[in-house]
């Protein structure tokens, strides 16, 4: 017996096209390579003191955003195709809220700090 909640139906030994698996493997390899590259770049910029201060923060921040997008694309398989609209909407909405909450918090707390200690 099996159905919408639980069950142990098979289906795992269906023949799979090898081409698709190869494509998938390639996607994960792409993801890994890009992520390694971006990580190395971020650490390199900081450790070898190529940049400093606000410029460093801005660049490593940008690299982090790019890496998040890369991992979403290659590891979590989120892209702009139609079938995943709802997941994408959810992620973008979360991104907006994070922006509001984190940005707002830093603005508010920074402002209070400045007025009390500055």
């Amino acid at each position: 017996m099996s159905g919408p909640w639980e069950g142990n139906a098979g289906g795992h030994n269906l023949p799979q096209p090898n081409a698709e698996a190869r494509q998938e493997r390639a996607a994960y390899l792409w993801g890994l390579s890009l992520a390694l590259l971006l990580t190395a770049a971020a650490f390199g910029l900081a450790v070898f003191k190529i940049l400093a201060g606000p410029a460093l923060l801005a660049v490593i921040g940008l690299l982090a955003v790019i890496q998040v997008v890369v991992q979403f694309r290659f590891f979590l398989h989120i892209d702009l195709s139609k079938s995943k609209r709802e997941d994408l909407q959810l992620i973008l909405f979360t991104g907006l809220l994070i922006l509001i909450m984190v940005g707002g918090s830093l603005w508010i707390l920074g402002n209070l700090d400045q007025r009390m200690m500055g």
Binding site: A42, A46, G61, L63, A64, Q67, V68, Q71
Partner: peptide, 16 residues
Amino acid sequence: LVWIVIFTLVYLPVVS
């Protein structure tokens, strides 16, 4: 994903 933000926000800014 969370770790990307951690190393960017916590570790890298203090190195320089």
